[in-house]
Each structure stands twice: as C-alpha cells, then as structure tokens.
Design a protein around this nucleic acid. Structure first.
Length: 470
RNA sequence: GGCCCGUUCGUCUAGUGGUUAGGACUCAUGGUUUUCAUCCAUGCAACAGGGGUUCGAUUCCCCUACGGGCUGCCA
C-alpha cells in the first residue's frame, strides 16, 4: 500500500476537547502504523468564531499529547483564492451555477415545509439558466450564491468503519459552495484542501458521515480522486449526549491539570471505540501504534467514563519510572520539590508513587515530605485523636531520644514496646503517630516514612504536633 | 418531515446459527497489607421489542421503538 497521508482538521472555535483528541489520535496512529504522514489543518474560514488563541491552545494540546504533526500547519483561510478560482471554473464548465434565491425566501420555504411536515427541497429554479441568463441577473446587481449541480444517480462509498454507504442523489440538495459574499463553504473547501494536500484517508467524526456523499460529488465534479473515508463514532458524555462544551471537563488541558499523563489519556481514548482484539487494556504509545487498525473501530458511540480513565492512569503510574515522574511533576508544578536533592525526591517518590493514581495524587501524598510545618486538619483530628494519643506521642518521643540509633530495627522495637505498654495493635498505635507526623491518615509505611524524614524532623514534627493537637 | 447511521451487563467491549453469552471498569463481600493505595478471590449485572427464515436465533432478514448525525449563505 502507498504511504497514507491523513490530517486532523479542527476549527479554532473552541478548545481541543476529548473527542477531537480521539480523532487526532486515531489519525496519528493510522499514519504511524503505516509509515504515513499526519498533517494538521486549521479550518478557520468562519471568521466570526475563529480565534488565534484556540489555534494556540489546540496545537499546545496536541503537542502535549505527543501527537505531533508533519510539515507546516495549513490554514484553510490562506487558500481562499484557490477555492474561489475553483468556484469560477465550475460555473464556467457548468458543474455549478449561480442561484439568486435569497436567504429570506429560503427560510420561508423551509418553514412552510416544516409546518406541512414535508421534506424540504431547495428549488432548482436557476439550475438550468444559461451562462448569459445568469450574467444578466448578475448585471442587474442581484446577489447570488453558487450551488453545486448535483446529477441524478446514486452516490456510494465504502467507509472503512461503516462499510458501504449509499445515497440517492435526489435526496441531496444542490448545496451552496460559495456564499453571496463570495466565500466558499465547508463541504466544498474541505474537498479542495484534502485533494490539494493529497490526503489519502479522511478519518474524522461520524458527524461528517452524512456530508460525505456531498463531498464525493464535489470530487467527481472536479474530476479529482476520491480519498478513502473512515468515520469514527462520537464520544458521549455521561448524559449520553454528544460531548460538547456544555459537559464538564472536556478540555484536554483540564485532564493534564488533573494530573493525568498524556500516555494514560491516549491509552484510555484509544479504548473508546476501538478494541485491540485481545484482553490487553494498558498500552504505551508503541503498543498502540503496533496494534492499531481501523477495522476494529466500533460503529456505536462510546460514553466517556472518568472512573475507567482513573484506573488506566493508576496502571500507568505503576509502570512509569521515577525519573520520568519527577520530570512530569516538575512540568505540572515547577515548585514541586523545589530545593530538594534529586536523591531525596526520588526516595520520596519510590515510597509514594505506587499508591497514587495520578500525578496530582502523588503531589498531594508526597507534599508532607517537603513542608516545613504540618498544617493539621481539625476535622480529621477530631475523628482520630483521642485522650491517649498525646501520651503515645510523648512516649514515642522519649523512646526515640533515649535510643542512639534511628534505624528500622530500632523503630520496630520501639513500637513493639509501645504496643505492649498501651495494649494496642500496630494499626491503632501508628494512627496518631502518622497524623502527628504527616497530617495524613494514609501514606507509605510508618517506618519508611520516619526513616526518610530522619530523626531530627521526626522529633521536631512530633513535639510540635503534640503541642498543637493536645 | 426526508435521508444516513447505530442498539450485548450501569460503562468500555468480546463473541457465535446450538456457549453456563467471555473480559475490563464501577459497585458489594472476603483475603493480603502497620494505615491508605495496590494486589488476589468471589459476587451482582446484558443480547431494546415484535415478526419472520431455521430443527434451533443474541447471531441472518423485515418492522417498530429508542438514540445520534445530516437536512445552514456553521465547520
């Protein structure tokens, strides 16, 4: 097979959301898998709604995800002259025509059809006007749009996901390819651009499935090669509605901020609408490229489930190396672990990493190893602190001070004595110790925590803690 | 209204003309763990409905229902 060229073509009217990221991912995977090319085209022809900040956001998000594109970004708006010249040539060769029906007339007709519960069809009034008849109306200063002259017949194509799709051309209107202000419309420019960019495979959301026959008709009118299409099912929110800005947390960068790694997000996204044909669910990028194919893409929409994302993320956290995790944490929060030695940071992480599901989890749980002073949550204190807690801490402090050594064996024997003395299980005994020491009720093993903190800090925290908490 | 697409546990999915319809997440219970998280075990839970075709349909066909998309001088 020839090397495929695919593209991701977002419009910069909003942030890159999860659905867009999935589309980008599948394009990217298809390109990588087949040694192809992955291009980025910004569809910015809606000047009302397009904004540069969204272009920046989208490219940042793609880069962060690791879905880097080949070549320069193509801006659709910069091709407008090319688009317009094609429109002119189509009027000349009769594959398109000027239509002088106004928007208001159309709106009225549309409304009438709706009231009568009839199918609305755009009247083909001007379809067969000759060039000179059209010119005459133009000369009169009448505004016009340009419509594609759709021939009779059947339009069909084989979608890589949906299979054979067949539409009767009679069910299609002669749709507008250029507005009355001369600007070309989406279904038209997308074909020109895809053709100009030599796109071989159009992989996009299935909201475009019904547009595809129209686009094919444009390719045919222009005598261009029709690319292969693959439509991806939509991603739905928990309410089963198509994911949109109305849903909470659809922005890729929100997930970055929540502490998910790009690899975890990509892994989860790949599972939405694709199955690897095995029971494996945790993939790194290379696995994904290796296993990916369009044949195993689902036809039905998938619901985004953050619980499963969280699980996937936890699996990735278990695998990720400490060195990488340090880099990721510092990227997420530059002040994380500031002023600490690499050795200490990596010791902290080796205790905490495996009990975290996200980078933010990890930051939270590791924070106690970096702060100067513990701030105690009094709600938690009220739940776990009791009359003997202070006594336990005092006894522990005494024992630590008496012992010369501060190592695991020593700590074990200290706690052993305390257990006997207070007639408590280790679990009960260490609860107030952990809290006084870290302000938390969970975390790494208490001996490991104390040893990493060191004798001086333990003594300081315990004595300060017992004062504040008593 | 018309056209196109879809429908297996709550969610992501596997699967076959004859299966105890499988796995994963979630949830519940138990176990491991000094806490928490992990991990392990067990359990709950699905073929949208109705007709066909067939000895037999979750699987093939049709209809209905439901959901989504398109039907824009948005992309």
């Amino acid at each position: 097979m020839n090397k495929p060229i695919v593209r991701f073509a977002p419009s910069p009217t909003g942030y890159l959301h999860i659905g867009g990221a999935r589309t980008a991912l599948f394009n990217w995977l298809y390109a990588k898998k087949n040694n192809g090319t992955f291009l980025l085209r910004i569809e910015d022809t809606d000047t009302e709604r397009s904004e540069q900040k969204y272009v920046d956001q989208i490219s940042d998000a793609l880069q962060w995800l690791g879905l880097s594109w080949d070549d320069e970004i193509v801006y659709q708006s910069s091709n407008i002259e090319r688009h317009q010249s094609v429109v002119v040539s189509m009027i000349e060769n009769g594959t398109a025509y000027r239509c002088f029906i106004t928007k208001e007339e159309l709106d009225n007709l549309r409304e009438k059809s709706e009231q009568n519960k009839e199918a609305f069809r755009v009247p083909k009034t001007y379809r067969d006007y000759t060039e000179s008849q059209q010119q005459e109306l133009v000369d009169q200063g009448k505004p016009f749009t340009v419509r594609l002259k759709i021939p009779d017949g059947i339009t069909e194509f084989d979608d890589l996901v949906y299979g054979n799709i067949k539409v009767n051309n009679n069910d299609l209107d002669d749709f507008i390819i250029a507005r009355s202000d001369g600007t070309p419309t989406y279904n038209f420019v997308v074909t020109i651009d895809d053709s100009d960019m030599n796109i071989t495979h159009v992989i996009r959301g299935d909201d475009h499935l019904a547009n595809t026959p129209k686009q094919i008709l444009v390719y045919k009118a222009l005598g261009l090669n029709v690319p292969t299409f693959a439509h991806l099912p939509m991603i739905l929110g928990a309410d089963k509605k198509r994911l949109s800005k109305r849903h909470t947390a659809t922005n890729v960068q929100e997930y970055r901020d929540k502490g998910y790694t790009s690899e975890a997000i990509l892994n989860y996204l790949s599972l939405l609408g694709w199955n690897p044909d095995s029971e494996q669910e945790i993939f790194n990028l290379d696995d994904l490229i290796d296993g990916f194919n369009l044949e195993q893409v689902q036809k039905k929409p998938a619901t985004f489930d953050e619980k499963k994302l969280l699980w996937v993320s936890g699996q990735h956290m278990a695998k990720i190396s400490i060195d990488i995790v340090i880099l990721e944490l510092e990227k997420l929060n530059p002040s994380w672990g500031q002023g600490q030695s690499d050795k200490y940071k990596s010791d902290v992480l080796s205790l905490t990493k495996d009990r975290s599901k996200t980078l933010t989890d990890l930051m939270e749980i590791s924070d106690t190893f970096f702060v100067d002073h513990i701030i105690y949550d009094m709600d938690i204190k009220n739940k776990i602190w009791n009359e003997i807690s202070s006594q336990i801490i005092d006894d522990l402090l005494n024992a630590i001070n008496i012992e010369e050594n501060f190592d695991k064996q020593t700590l074990e024997s200290i706690f052993e004595n305390l257990m006997n003395q207070h007639d408590l299980s280790l679990g009960k005994l260490m609860q107030p110790v952990r809290f006084a020491l870290s302000g938390l009720t969970y975390g790494p093993g208490i001996f490991d925590t104390m040893l990493l903190l060191g004798k001086d800090i333990c003594v300081k925290r315990l004595s300060e803690g017992v004062k504040e908490l008593s």
